[in-house]
Amino acid sequence: MAYSHPSREQLKELLERSITIAVVGLSDKPDRTSYMVSQAMQAKGYRIIPVNPNAETILGEKSFATLRDIPEPVDIVNVFRRSEHTPPVAEEAVAIRAKALWLQLGIANEEAASIAQDGGLFVVMDRCIKVEDSILLPHGKSK
């Protein structure tokens, strides 16, 4: 199935019902985009779970080497990795039964999208989760 961007309403629904975001490629360096985006999402009330095998903690949360190492359910797998590295991430996202695979702005991979969609995941590519959240939920998540 070919990928097509979800509607704004679909994105809003995903963000409203999501709490836990596993961030693959989250850097522990505060000047990196992955750190700034994740910090902003954490400030908005999302639980951020870092996936970075080279860090123990990031943003006050324990970091995991892989998605499979996370011992709790994940709503969104947010990816800050080069496009060619995303198919294995999609496979892991399906394996852990995440609800969505979100490839950040500038990242797109049809194979990863197909893997995730075939596994029942909602897929977003080439969009910044922070920007979408700011536009769609400007006053924060409804309780």
Rank of each mutant, 00 (worst) to 15 (best):
M1F: 13
A2K: 15
A2R: 13
Y3M: 05
Y3V: 06
S7V: 11
S7G: 13
R8K: 15
L11F: 13
K12L: 14
E13T: 14
E16Q: 15
R17E: 15
S18E: 07
T20P: 02
T20K: 13
I21C: 08
A22G: 03
A22D: 03
V23H: 00
V23K: 00
L26N: 08
L26S: 12
S27C: 14
K29P: 03
K29D: 15
P30H: 12
P30Q: 11
R32W: 02
Y35V: 13
Y35Q: 10
V37Y: 04
V37A: 13
Q39V: 05
A40F: 10
Q42V: 10
A43K: 11
A43C: 01
I49H: 00
P50T: 12
V51S: 09
V51C: 12
N54P: 02
A55I: 09
A55M: 10
E56H: 12
L59H: 05
E61A: 15
S63K: 12
A65M: 04
A65L: 04
T66G: 03
L67M: 09
R68E: 14
R68F: 03
R68H: 05
R68D: 12
D69N: 09
I70K: 02
I70G: 00
P71E: 13
P73R: 09
D75R: 02
V79H: 02
R82N: 08
R82I: 05
S83Q: 05
H85D: 14
T86F: 07
T86D: 08
P88L: 11
P88T: 11
V89K: 05
V89F: 06
V89Q: 04
V89E: 03
E91V: 06
V94L: 10
A95F: 01
A95G: 02
I96N: 05
R97T: 05
R97M: 10
A98I: 06
A100M: 11
L101W: 02
W102T: 00
L103F: 10
L103K: 03
Q104D: 07
G106R: 01
I107P: 01
I107L: 11
I107C: 09
A108I: 09
E110T: 08
E111G: 01
E111C: 05
E111K: 11
A112Y: 07
A112M: 06
A113V: 09
S114D: 13
I115N: 00
I115V: 12
A116T: 09
A116I: 10
A116E: 10
A116K: 05
G119P: 01
G119C: 03
G120M: 05
L121T: 06
F122V: 10
F122Y: 12
D126A: 09
R127M: 12
R127H: 10
R127E: 12
C128N: 03
C128L: 07
C128D: 02
K130V: 01
E132A: 14
D133G: 00
S134Y: 00
I135V: 14
I135W: 08
I135K: 12
L136P: 01
L137A: 08
L137V: 06
P138W: 06
K141D: 07
S142C: 02
S142L: 12
